[in-house]
C-alpha cells in the first residue's frame, strides 16, 4: 500500500465531506484513532441546528470518521453515504496516520 501524506488525506476527506454534506446534509469529521481516543483531525464543527447524534465509522486501526446526521437519513440514503465513505477511504483502511 502506498503511503500518502496527511495533507493529501485531508484534501481527499474534504472533497468527500463537501460532496456528502451538499447531497445528504451529513457532516463529517476526520479523526485519528488511538485506542479509545478519537482525536479530531479535520472537518467542520456541527452547527447549532444539527442533531448532536453522531456515528463513528472506523476506516482502519488508525483512522475514523465521525458522521453527524446519519440518523436522520432514510435507510437507502444512509447506505449511499456509507458506500461513498468506503469508496473514498478503503485504501487507507488498516493503516495508522501520523500528524
Amino acid at each position: 500500500m502506498n503511503e500518502i501524506s496527511t495533507s493529501e488525506l485531508i484534501k481527499r476527506f474534504q472533497r468527500l465531506a463537501g460532496r456528502l454534506e451538499s447531497k445528504h446534509a451529513v457532516l463529517l469529521q476526520l479523526a485519528l484513532v488511538r485506542g479509545r481516543r478519537w482525536s479530531y483531525l479535520a472537518g467542520r464543527m456541527p452547527a447549532p441546528g444539527l442533531s448532536p447524534v453522531s456515528e463513528r465509522v472506523k476506516l482502519g486501526p488508525g483512522l475514523g470518521l465521525v458522521v453527524y446526521g446519519l440518523d436522520e437519513l432514510r435507510p437507502v440514503e444512509r447506505l449511499q453515504v456509507l458506500k461513498a465513505i468506503g469508496d473514498s477511504f478503503a485504501p487507507e483502511a488498516g493503516r495508522a496516520v501520523d500528524r
Binding site: A31, R36, S39, Y40, R56
Partner: peptide, 8 residues
C-alpha cells in the same frame, strides 16, 4: 475524547 471532540 471518544468522539473526536478534542483539540481544535
Amino acid at each position: 475524547y471518544r468522539c473526536g471532540r478534542t483539540g481544535q
